[in-house]
Simulated scan of single mutants.
Amino acid sequence: MTYGENCALKCGFCLAGLGCDTVSGACAEGCDTGYQGFYCNEKCMAMTYGENCALKCGHCLTGSGCDSVSGACAEGCDPGYQGFYCNEICNNKTFGRNCSGICGHCRNDTACVPFSGSCDSGCEAGYKGLTCTETCGLCRENTDCDQFNGTCLNGCQDGYQGEICNETCNIGYYGEDCHLRCYEHCAESTSMTMTTCHHVTGECLIGCKDGWIGKHCETACFNGTFGKNCAWKCNEWCAGESQKCDPRDGLCINGCIPGFSGSHCNMYCDQGSYGERCLKSCEKCFLKDCHHITGHCAHSEPLCEDGYRGEKCDKECEPCTFGPDCRYNCSNQCFNGKCILESKDIKDDTSQRDNKEFFEDFLPIIGGVVSPFLIILTIITAYRIGKCCKRPKRRPHN
């Protein structure tokens, strides 16, 4: 395996180790795989390999070249290629170095560019970015957005806003293009960062203001209810039909039924008044007090003031009568139905006449009861006197 003067030179890499010409050093059958040149002592040039360096290397990483003998890429394949010789393009929707990447959501389910992962056909609806792996904002009806800046081409879904539709509506708004205001009867939050209604549906998030119910707090309390969640009943003494009080605070809308007062109709009329709005007076009652509804005077003796009569003391005395409850008669001093004397004189005269009439009426009765007792008493007295005064008979002398 030597040649030249004194056989001092070593043959190159002749094919199959057959040796070289002993004079010139040329390999008679050519070079071994991976070598080239007259003496077969030169490795294949970069990016070639094999017998006579006739084969071209595959897509070795960053052009690093392959093994001159086997053709294997020492540092692996460029992105988008695979296989022993790095000459096979990635398949099955993979890409990148060693085909380890998975293609994104390319339009029409096509494969991506094997070395970059980009979608030449564009992205499916709802996706964006070079590799179509980023989701668009909440575009209306999940339609397309710009593949590179993410702008929704047909606007945002209800409840969202912004160029890429990833922002919820401002506080107090909801719905399509965030143009709708939350219902005015939604309860208000004490937090400045919390909206009163859901940004999509408009439903009130923390309930309703007093007097309202429903998902959107659009229905006022009814059937005689009021307050938070319409949980309270209007006072039964509120006047009117059906909804008798303010749905927010229970104030009686139509006032009170006769006999009651106050904004909620929860108080009786003050003493001395009764009836509708407590405007009627019972001042002619002797005690200045009466039933708050009927006006009937509180029980007393007498019931009414001078000159009045009836359960409510609202009737004047009939002709020729006067005094408390009209109990006195002035027929002897009456002219055209009116008493002539002062009421005091008539009362005194009436009182004297009443006493006289009493004795005239009851004297015969007294006499009839007392007389028999007097007669019996007289007989008993006479008998005792006679018995005491009667002398005893003397005995005859012997």
Rank of each mutant, 00 (worst) to 15 (best):
Y3F: 08
G4W: 04
E5C: 13
N6S: 13
C7L: 13
C11Y: 02
F13Y: 13
A16M: 14
G19V: 05
C20K: 01
G37F: 01
Y39N: 03
N41W: 04
A46N: 11
Y49A: 02
K56L: 12
C66D: 00
E75L: 15
P79M: 07
Q82M: 13
C86S: 05
N87D: 08
K93V: 09
T94V: 06
G96N: 05
N98F: 14
C99V: 03
S100F: 12
S100W: 12
G101F: 05
T110R: 09
A111N: 09
C112I: 03
G117V: 00
D120W: 12
D120T: 13
C123W: 03
K128C: 09
G129S: 07
G129R: 03
T143S: 12
N149Q: 11
T151P: 07
G155E: 04
G159E: 00
I164V: 13
N166P: 04
C169N: 02
I171L: 08
I171A: 03
G175T: 00
L180G: 05
E188A: 11
S191Y: 06
S191G: 08
T195C: 01
C204G: 01
K209I: 08
K209G: 05
G211W: 02
W212D: 01
H216E: 07
H216P: 06
A220H: 06
G224S: 06
G224L: 03
N229L: 11
W232S: 11
E236L: 13
G240N: 03
E241K: 12
E241R: 11
R248P: 05
L251V: 14
C252S: 00
N254E: 06
P258E: 07
F260K: 00
S263C: 15
H264E: 08
N266L: 07
Y268D: 12
G272H: 06
G272C: 05
L279C: 13
S281R: 07
S281N: 07
C282F: 01
C282D: 01
K284D: 05
L287A: 06
H292Y: 10
T294M: 07
H296G: 09
C297E: 01
H299V: 15
S300N: 09
G307T: 02
K315M: 11
E316I: 14
C317G: 02
P324G: 09
R327H: 11
Y328F: 07
S331I: 15
N336C: 13
L341I: 11
L341Y: 06
E342T: 13
D345V: 09
K347G: 08
D348Y: 15
T350K: 09
T350S: 10
S351K: 15
S351W: 09
K356M: 14
E357A: 15
F373V: 10
L374M: 12
I379Q: 09
I379H: 10
I380M: 15
A382D: 14
Y383M: 14
R384M: 13
K393G: 12
H397D: 15
N398M: 11
N398E: 12
